[in-house]
Design a protein around this nucleic acid. Structure first.
Length: 465
RNA sequence: GGCCGGUUAGCCAAGUGGUAAGGCAGAGGUCUGCAAAACCUCUAUACUCCGGUUCGAAUCCGGAACCGGCCUCCA
């Protein structure tokens, strides 16, 4: 069966087809690089990574764009406070972001355009909108005229007249024709200090929404396949993107919209005041492995709110370990004749894995299939009825699944010579029944994060996750 | 006020009409110098509540409670 995705636009599960056969173009709303990203942000990026990896698993070529928002009110405030340039302010957070992506095993997108590198493209869109009567200038700023786009609200299913005009309408927005019109370009203001661009639109800076329109269309074309983001971006951000993009080009902007639910921590909204606000660095500092965090973020369906708990993190770690151990045990299988039941077990795993993920990326179901495969194969292994060739096929399947899951170590890390020397010494000590010495070595290695496994076949080791 | 999700065992979490996947935790076992690790086996009268439709409902419809989200720059 084909891949089906729930499109926010229609609220229906739709069969996915790409505009260009075999090639998916997707745009993913990225971070504002004014601080370290938190695990809620990474939930969204992990979901996008799952989508990307599964599209590739299904044989698509993927061109993904993730923007880096490096201009907004908070960044301007930070720049002026510290008296440094905008790039000087944002670069450390940009670097930290990529470090976190690597730690979490999130594949790199093809493009990471920064907003401030695309001012000209944004200006061009604003000019096109003005020319077509969809935008107007007021006191040096430019606004999108929502009343000129009847389709406005079709993504979030919100009606303008239902919106509560409330406290969040800033007092300085009086010059807009109607309060719901949003800024495409903001005129320079003294508080902006040195942060501005001189453009045909005047001296100022871009609004927030326009960057995504400009950069997605530049790298993916006027119409592309998938646009993703967190649910909070559905309105107004994505709604505004659609309005400005479609009015500028006269074409459909994104064909599918996917929105990721938020995560909560221990059943509560993540907030600094509750003390349950975590960056990836906060968790690794507590000794948690990034791959455990990845698994936890990945394992819940993306349209479901994810309850992030420390117990859950321990459970995620144990689940990943089970997969890693499964692979190690398979690789140690020797000889034997092929098991007649095994081909059906592998086939069932492949089929189940694909069927679940085809169904709007049902990752929990897919993981269930993987663990059933692990259990059934382990059963054959412990009965010593699995052949070396069977085991190789099982490893192949597991590695194939892991192209989507991304939780297995890329390659076994080497072992230091002195660690090997300790292991050898312990083996010798055990032969001489010098258990005091062998236990001391065992403790020493454990303190170094090396777990020993004394099996009937001898002593092996693994790194603690 | 408008709109949108959710509520499944000790915890996490699939399942959208046919009688409840999977992971963690827990118990037992194999192995072991003892452990650990790994693996196997087992376990739980778990579908928020109240009505309705149906031969049959976690699943569909109506209502309630609770939790959470969006309503102009927050993934």
């Amino acid at each position: 069966m084909a891949l089906r995705l729930i499109n926010t636009q229609t609220r229906r599960k739709e069969e996915f087809t790409s505009l260009e056969p075999g090639h998916v173009r997707m745009y993913t709303c990225g971070p504002t690089i004014y601080d370290f990203a938190h695990i809620g942000n990474y939930r969204a990026y992990t979901f996008e990574d799952l989508l990307r990896r599964y599209l590739k698993y299904r044989g698509y070529k993927v061109t993904q764009v993730m923007n880096l928002t490096d201009i907004d009110d908070k960044i301007i405030r930070g720049v002026n406070k510290k008296g440094i340039t905008l790039k000087e302010y944002t670069n450390p957070y940009k670097q930290a972001f990529f470090e976190d992506l690597d730690a979490l095993g999130i594949e790199r997108a093809e493009h990471y355009p920064a907003a401030t590198d695309h001012i000209n493209e944004m200006v061009a869109i604003v000019q096109a909108l003005v020319k077509k009567g969809h935008a107007y200038e007021a006191d040096g700023s430019y606004y999108f005229k929502i009343s000129s786009f009847p389709k406005y609200g079709s993504l979030s299913h919100m009606k303008l007249e239902d919106l509560k005009a409330g406290a969040r309408i800033a007092a300085d927005e009086y010059e807009k024709d109607t309060v719901s019109d949003f800024a495409l370009w903001k005129a320079w203001d003294e508080a902006d200090g040195p942060v501005y661009w001189d453009t045909p639109l005047g001296k100022g800076r871009p609004g927030w929404h326009i960057e995504c329109s400009a950069m997605s269309m530049k790298y993916l074309g006027e119409t592309f396949d998938i646009h993703t983001g967190g649910v909070d971006n559905m309105f107004p951000h994505h709604e505004n993107e659609i309005a400005q993009s479609e009015c500028a080009t006269g074409r459909t902007f994104s064909r599918y919209w996917l929105h990721c639910e938020h995560l909560i921590v221990e059943g509560q909204k993540m907030s600094k005041s509750l003390g349950n606000f975590f960056t990836l660095r906060d968790l690794t500092a507590k000794g948690y492995s990034p791959v455990a965090v990845r698994y936890l973020l990945l394992a819940t369906h993306y349209r479901q709110q994810l309850n992030f708990t420390m117990d859950g993190l321990d459970g995620a770690k144990a689940a990943v370990e089970r997969l890693i151990d499964f692979k190690r045990n398979l690789q140690a299988v020797e000889g034997g004749s092929d098991n007649a039941d095994f081909p059906a077990i592998v086939q069932k795993a492949y089929d189940g894995f694909g069927e679940c993920l085809d169904d709007d990326l049902n990752i929990s179901g897919a993981l269930g299939e993987v663990f059933n495969f692990v259990k059934e194969t382990n059963k054959l292994m412990s009965a010593k009825t699995l052949s070396k060739a069977d085991a190789a096929k099982a490893v192949e399947a597991l590695e194939k699944f892991d192209t989507v899951l991304g939780v297995l170590p890329k390659k076994e890390a080497g072992i230091d010579a002195d660690i090997q020397a300790l292991i050898d010494e312990r083996i010798a000590a055990r032969k001489e029944k010098n258990f005091a010495r062998s236990d001391a070595i065992r403790d020493q290695l454990q303190a170094m994060g090396i777990i020993l496994e004394d099996t009937p076949k001898g002593t092996t080791w693994k790194r603690q996750l």
